[in-house]
């Protein structure tokens, strides 16, 4: 195939083929770009899908590319090992390799599931330590923000709330650390489960191995989540985070700017809702009364209409 007829994806496949052939034969491997780079250079474009679906596809392809590269890098590492020394590779090193490979990715997902990502956005593919640092920085910033407020714009009620601020911050941080420890144990248990499973069911392929790892992770994760301790830490983290957001909202109330306060806004929404409910109830009552009226009218018409039966039978009815 001539190069100018090739699509970017054909070229990428060709590069990959060359890379893997070199790897397989123990030759120096040529440079090769990963799938994430390819997707960045050739982003999804479609004239047929609407903006929302196009964005969804781009997001999906980005996520799929992250996992695809993880998979291919692991395969390359395994191929290197297999080629270098056939006798050294065993199930245990494979399990350790997987543990290392998936640690960061799993941690990133673990943190996302605590709704942290709505508040914090550490750069790149953050590990748990980076999440912790981002959380610390966020709490520090809020404390500084609270401390810097001039007394004139902070109501006495809010001053009292600010006292609890540090307490919630500490609770949040403590719960996060405890959840980190949970996560470590889930990962350890995953490796233990996998080792046990592989002894009985050696993987048929690398993809099969990743599926086995997934099963073991879910099992370990589920066991941990069903413990009362985990549920308490999970709740403590989320509740303290909510307390902080609530305090942050109260600190940033636009008192001084003359805009309507959050409290007044909520009050008007509540009032509007109350009226909406009243209107609905009244409409339903009117509909019921109308129905009843129609029924009564029908009955009345039946009572006043002259009997259509032949004369002589009327009096017997």
């Amino acid at each position: 195939m001539s190069q100018h007829n090739q699509t970017p994806s054909d070229l990428w496949l060709e590069q990959q083929q060359a890379f893997w052939q070199a790897l397989q034969s123990g030759q120096p491997t040529p440079p090769v770009s990963d799938w994430q780079t390819f997707i960045q250079q050739n982003p999804y474009r479609s004239a047929t899908q609407n903006d929302e679906l196009s964005q969804l596809l781009r997001d999906n392809q980005q996520l799929a590319a992250e996992f695809a590269d993880l998979y291919r890098h692991f395969a390359a590492a395994q191929a290197n090992t297999a080629h270098a020394n056939n006798d050294s590779e065993n199930l245990q090193t494979l399990v350790s390799g997987l543990h290392t490979l998936l640690d960061e990715k799993a941690a990133s997902l673990f943190a996302r599931n605590w709704q942290l990502s709505s508040l914090l956005n550490p750069k790149g593919q953050p590990n748990l330590q980076q999440w912790q640092q981002a959380l610390d920085a966020f709490l520090q910033q809020l404390i500084r923000q609270a401390d810097s407020l001039p007394d004139s714009i902070v109501s006495p009620g809010h001053k009292e709330q600010l006292h609890t601020f540090r307490e919630h911050g500490q609770n949040c941080r403590d719960a996060f650390s405890a959840l980190n420890e949970d996560y470590r144990q889930i990962l350890e248990q995953t490796s233990a489960n996998l080792t046990q499973q592989l002894e009985q069911h050696p993987p048929e392929s690398l993809k099969h191995l990743l599926d086995q790892w997934t099963d073991c992770y879910e099992k370990a994760y589920s066991q941990r989540v069903f413990t009362p301790e985990y549920q308490s830490r999970h709740a403590a983290f989320n509740n303290s985070l909510l307390e902080i957001i609530k305090l942050q909202q109260s600190i940033s109330q636009p008192f001084a700017t003359g805009l309507v306060s959050q409290q007044a806004y909520q009050q008007s929404l509540k009032q509007q809702h109350k009226l909406r409910k009243q209107v609905r109830t009244q409409q339903q009552t009117i509909a019921r009364l109308e129905q009843r009226l129609t029924q009564l009218e029908t009955q009345l018409t039946g009572m006043t209409e002259p009997d259509k039966h032949p004369s002589g039978t009327e009096s017997r009815s």
Partner: peptide, 23 residues
């Protein structure tokens, strides 16, 4: 003695198929 879990050939075949599916 331990044996490799996957041979380089096995991995090559699997990844080639995956790359093809990807594109």
């Amino acid at each position: 003695m331990t044996r490799p879990v996957f041979t380089a050939q096995q991995l090559f075949t699997e990844i080639s198929q995956f790359n093809q599916q990807l594109t």
